[in-house]
Design a protein around this nucleic acid. Structure first.
Length: 620
DNA sequence: AGCACGCCGACT
DNA sequence: GTCGGCGTGCTC
């Protein structure tokens, strides 16, 4: 019998699905199709997820579908399953997950002409394999990747290649063209809505079978998925920092489970989680591809306990000497210093007033390049006041050192060198400089520069981050720098014995990951458990705090007999951002679904309070 | 998310 | 007497 009811979901934080009548004279819509409905008396785009002969809801209370928006489903059968699993894992609604997977242009009620052929029903799911390519050379992975791609293409299957950074896309496209592939499409959220839709449609109708893109490209609507490549898997850019807070790796895993095909990670120093999971699988020839380094910069550690940089410079003397040597050979130097601006704070010498960002409550740093005080959190800028806002005096002074101060200092110490600075604001690649003073933004362009010496000045700040991944990030960073530095990488530190530094120096991968996994196990950190962060934020501090407090209380009651635990309620690492006060509660336990089920009710209650926003971040 | 319903404070 | 605050509940 012809189905009478279409079950739909919407891109709101409401569960559903909701039943709608299919008007008699209509042809039956298909699951995955976009429809227009009246939801709560307002027009909305919704997504058909299922058809059924009848509804639990009395017919009198059912509304009809108003319109079917496209000829063919926007979401195929596989992607319906994938988004459903995604919603389950990350604790969002199915509709929200579907919208995360679709181009933004499809969220509005407009018919998009598409000659998409109906999706072929599930034939057999292709064999699947997960491969890790540990490429220390940073270069010779390309041949291996080419053969893997060719393997998929030969079977008429599609390839998705994810990179962490938009700037890496052209390089990948160039390589693919050189290998003779013409049907390559780019997907990235930086595209305009129109371009995004055009590229997406091209992939959907099978014009492009190779997709290159950043995080969101993991949802590319390819038909026969043969291979997903994830380059630099450890990069934090693969995690979305807004709802639904998904990680591209997790989505790739779900897609592989649902659609089959291979999953290929490429990295010189992957996340501890990936290393552990690949080690768990027998390290066979096919699953683990080891590419040794041919040439790599040496790593040298300078103990700041022995070489105290003077009051006037933060560059230790041995490093200064190496810079002089490198300059004498007319070679290029990068000095890594992860702090933007000129100063870190601006203070009145008369009344000790410190200028803070009015929206975020943090010190504002003077940026000489903009001649303004800038907040490093929200980028809010104000002119440097002539008089102190506290006492009206004229004794405002800039303290601490940011990258701009370092730049002028370096120029003073090495007058023979052309010194320039590279940070987030810099757009041109500084090819003509001898010394480039740079923040971590330089990572994006480092392969383009031919650098002999990299001096890392601020690794101690990175090591002391309150983040369980700090050691791994330092290790990955240093290994990466060794790949791009022709001669050597010099790290000055107070933590000369730190295992992340020593293992990076000795290229001791086994040692690093073993030690790190040991610590993670001891501390009960991932991958030995899962974390969920609940963030509570609001404009009125007390309101946000009270909601957080109540939520924390009811979570504590909830978990009395459960396997998971609730950590203390705390101000977030960023306690105030853009006029909103932020608190977070961390949960820790072996099973994400179990934790989500346990907190669902309490979170729902907390979300009811208006002016306070509660978000759930799984595997933060 | 948004919006309607419903119950208590200061006002033309 | 009423206008309107926001806590509570629901969306087929």
């Amino acid at each position: 019998m012809k189905p009478k009811i279409a079950q739909v979901v919407v891109g709101l934080p409401v569960e559903g699905p909701f039943d709608y009548l299919i008007p008699d004279v209509w042809p039956t819509p298909q699951p995955g199709q976009r429809v227009h409905v009246s939801f709560q008396n307002r027009g909305r785009v919704a997504y058909v997820v299922k058809l059924c002969p009848q509804s639990e809801v009395p017919v009198a209370r059912l509304k009809p579908l108003l319109e079917v928006l496209d000829e063919a489903p926007s979401v195929d059968q596989y992607m319906l399953q994938v988004t459903h699993a995604l919603a389950q894992y990350y604790g969002c609604s199915w509709g929200e997950a579907i919208e995360a997977a679709l181009p933004a242009a499809l969220r509005i009620k407009r018919i998009f002409a598409s000659s998409v052929a109906a999706t072929s029903p599930a034939s057999e799911i292709p064999a699947q394999q997960t491969i890790f390519c540990h490429d220390l050379s940073g270069r010779r992975q390309w041949g291996f990747l080419q053969s893997q791609i060719e393997g998929a293409v030969a079977k008429q299957m599609a390839v998705i290649w994810l990179v962490p950074e938009v700037l890496m896309i052209p390089k990948v496209c160039t390589a693919l063209k050189a290998w003779g592939y013409r049907d390559v499409a780019v997907l990235d959220k930086a595209l305009t809505a129109k371009e995004e839709l055009a590229h997406w449609s091209g992939i959907k109708i099978g014009e492009s079978r190779i997709v290159v893109g950043t995080r969101s490209a993991v949802f590319a609507p390819v038909r026969r998925l043969g291979l997903i490549i994830i380059t630099d898997e450890e990069n934090l850019a693969f995690k979305q920092e807004q709802s639904p807070f998904y990680h591209a790796r997790k989505v790739a895993e779900i897609r592989q489970q649902v659609e089959g095909g291979n999953l290929l990670y490429v990295s010189a120093a992957p996340s501890v989680e990936l290393w552990a999971s690949m080690k768990g699988n027998e390290r066979s020839e096919t699953q683990w591809k080891e590419i040794p380094a041919q040439q790599m910069g040496r790593l040298q550690l300078i103990d700041l306990a022995n070489y105290k940089p003077g009051k006037r410079t933060i560059i230790a003397f041995p490093l200064q000497n190496m810079i002089i040597d490198t300059l004498a050979r007319s070679e290029k130097i990068v000095l890594w210093f992860n702090r933007r601006g000129f100063s870190t704070l601006t203070k009145c010498n008369q009344c000790a007033h410190i200028i803070k960002c009015e929206r975020c409550d943090v010190h504002m740093a003077y940026q000489d390049s903009r001649k303004q005080l800038v907040c490093y959190l929200c980028d809010h800028a104000i002119p440097l006041p002539e008089r102190c806002p506290g006492c009206g005096g004229v004794y405002l002074r800039s303290l601490g050192s940011g990258i701009e101060r370092l730049e002028s200092e370096v120029a003073r110490i090495f007058p023979q060198a052309r010194v320039t600075r590279f940070d987030k604001e810099t757009s041109r690649i500084p090819r003509n400089a001898d010394i480039i003073v740079a923040t971590q933004a330089v990572l994006r362009i480092l392969p383009e520069l031919s650098v002999a010496l990299v001096g890392v000045l601020s690794i101690d700040t990175e090591l002391s981050r309150i983040d369980y991944r700090a050691a791994q990030r330092v290790f990955s960073l240093l290994v990466y720098l060794r790949q791009v530095a022709r001669d050597k990488v010099v790290v000055q530190t107070h933590h000369i014995e730190h295992y992340a530094l020593r293992c990076a120096r000795d290229l001791d991968f086994i040692g690093f990951y073993q030690q790190e996994l040991g610590l993670r196990k001891e501390m009960g950190f991932p991958p030995f458990c899962h974390w969920i962060t609940l963030m509570i934020r609001g404009k009125v501090r007390d309101e946000a705090y009270n909601v957080a407090l109540k939520l924390h209380e009811s979570l504590n009651q909830q978990r009395a007999s459960a396997e998971w635990e609730v950590l203390d309620l705390q101000p977030d690492f960023v306690p105030k951002l853009r006029d909103k006060y932020r608190f977070h509660i961390m949960l820790k336990g072996p099973s994400v679904p179990q934790m989500l089920a346990g907190i669902e009710q309490a979170v729902k209650v907390a979300k009811r309070k208006k002016d306070v926003i509660v978000t759930v971040n799984v595997d933060p």
